[in-house]
């Protein structure tokens, strides 16, 4: 089979440029295969983050032909032929080297989320209760949703906005059938939930097909509205407590 040219970003925080690499093509090949070929034969120091190569770990996120994607899942035969394939690091995070960016901010956000606390009486849990939450727990933390979210990507509001990944995590905790932590203050005041104007970019890019906007973000927004802006509920909660 013929070679395809890959234009791969080489550089670091100070800057860089795309370098052309010719790569022989095999059936069923994905972008990550091509990068492994480049590492193995052409540029042994090409920095790429990857682990499972099976779309289960969420390590190999990048921008392929300008589109955020998991490289292990992006088949070459899904891309237009006859022109080079460009591979750039995610734009929203600072580049460390080549295709590897510094995603540590995400881990800092995660630490701030009030953790799971189980109800004291370990009660039975039914599949219906689990089904809704399991969707959120599918998240592989590829951070592609964070990468495309314009609040982070264009407006750089990392200090005040947790981002779609963590709304998914928050939803998973809030709707957990056995959790009793009250996260409403955090949701309203610290998570930046209000900054999301539900353009659904995150949902479109999610490789796990989690309905981030509809199933996580909107219900969380409703919770905040109910809790803080519904006077009847406020009085009720004062007397009987939440949940």
């Amino acid at each position: 089979m013929p070679d395809v040219t890959f234009k791969v970003f080489r550089g670091d925080a100070k800057g860089g440029q795309a370098i052309d690499y010719p790569v022989p093509i095999a059936p069923g090949m994905v972008v990550l295969d091509a990068l492994h070929y480049i590492q193995g034969y052409l540029a042994p120091d090409l920095a790429v983050r990857w682990n499972c190569k099976a779309a289960k770990c969420g390590s190999c996120s990048a921008e392929v032909n300008g589109k955020p994607a998991l490289m292990c899942k992006t088949r070459l035969d899904s891309l237009p032929t006859g022109r080079p394939i460009t591979v750039y690091p995610m734009k929203t995070f600072p580049v460390i080297k080549d295709l590897v960016c510094d995603v540590s901010w995400n881990y800092d956000v995660n630490k701030k989320i009030p953790p799971y606390r189980p109800a004291k009486d370990g009660r039975k849990i039914y599949q219906e209760d689990v089904d809704r939450v399991q969707e959120f727990r599918k998240c592989i933390e590829c951070f592609l949703c964070q990468d495309v979210c314009h609040v982070l990507r264009e407006h750089e509001k990392k200090a005040e906005f947790a981002g779609p990944r963590f709304f998914v995590r928050l939803a998973g905790l809030e709707m957990h059938p056995n959790d009793i932590t009250d996260r409403s203050e955090f949701l309203k005041n610290s998570s930046g939930l209000g900054l999301c104007n539900i353009t659904k970019c995150c949902t479109e890019v999610c490789p796990e097909e989690i309905h981030i906007t509809d199933n996580a973000i909107i219900p969380l927004k409703e919770r905040v509205a109910d809790r803080f802006f519904d006077p009847l509920r406020w009085v009720f909660a004062k007397i009987f407590g939440r949940k």
Partner: peptide, 14 residues
């Protein structure tokens, strides 16, 4: 022998 820098160098890691 390893080529390149020490920063995130997969060849060195290998």
């Amino acid at each position: 022998a390893v080529k390149g820098e020490r920063t995130y160098n997969p060849g060195w890691h290998l």
